[in-house]
């Protein structure tokens, strides 16, 4: 049994929502594989790092945002390529922030605050598209509960 236990890269990601109900997408730099796509905020957890701390670190590194609230978990994803040493699993959270100003890192070249449906329209990556669909579903459920 235990010899079959896998080892994985673990990613944490955030759909950041602003008070206008827009979500943040970042365009990956050409040399940042998969380059050029519109992505959610996030990245790999480091060894010995708590994953919630990893989420905080990635949000700060990629956007400069320090203040946000985690609303809930949205979507688990995995990305397996030919060589299992690249096996990656991740979890995306819905987060809210009042921060307007974004400071990009060298990993991204552009950012956009978009209505969720506009974000879906420009997404070309399955994982990002699924994250956004799950966000829209959960947000609609929360809105209908609060009415």
């Amino acid at each position: 049994m235990s010899e079959k236990v896998g080892r994985f890269t673990f990613c944490v990601a955030a759909i950041l929502e602003n008070p206008d109900g827009e979500v943040l997408l970042l365009k990956r730099a050409p040399d940042n594989f998969p380059g050029g796509i519109w992505d959610v905020v996030g990245g790999a957890v480091e060894q010995f790092e708590d994953p919630f701390v990893g989420l905080q670190r990635e949000i700060k590194e990629e956007t400069g945002i320090i203040e946000y609230l985690v609303i809930k978990a949205l979507d688990v994803f995995h990305w397996y390529q030919e060589d299992p040493k690249w096996d990656m699993i991740g979890l995306t959270f819905w987060c809210r922030t009042k921060a307007k100003e974004i400071v990009l890192s060298h990993e991204h070249v552009e950012y956009k605050w978009l209505k969720p449906n506009e974000a879906l329209d420009i997404s070309t990556h399955d994982i990002v598209t699924n994250n956004l669909k799950q966000f829209i579903k959960e947000r609609n459920e929360l809105n209908s509960k609060q009415k």
Binding site: V45, Q47, F48, I89
Partner: peptide, 8 residues
């Protein structure tokens, strides 16, 4: 640096 983890 990316870590490597068991995932449960």
């Amino acid at each position: 640096m990316k870590g490597k983890f068991m995932v449960a």
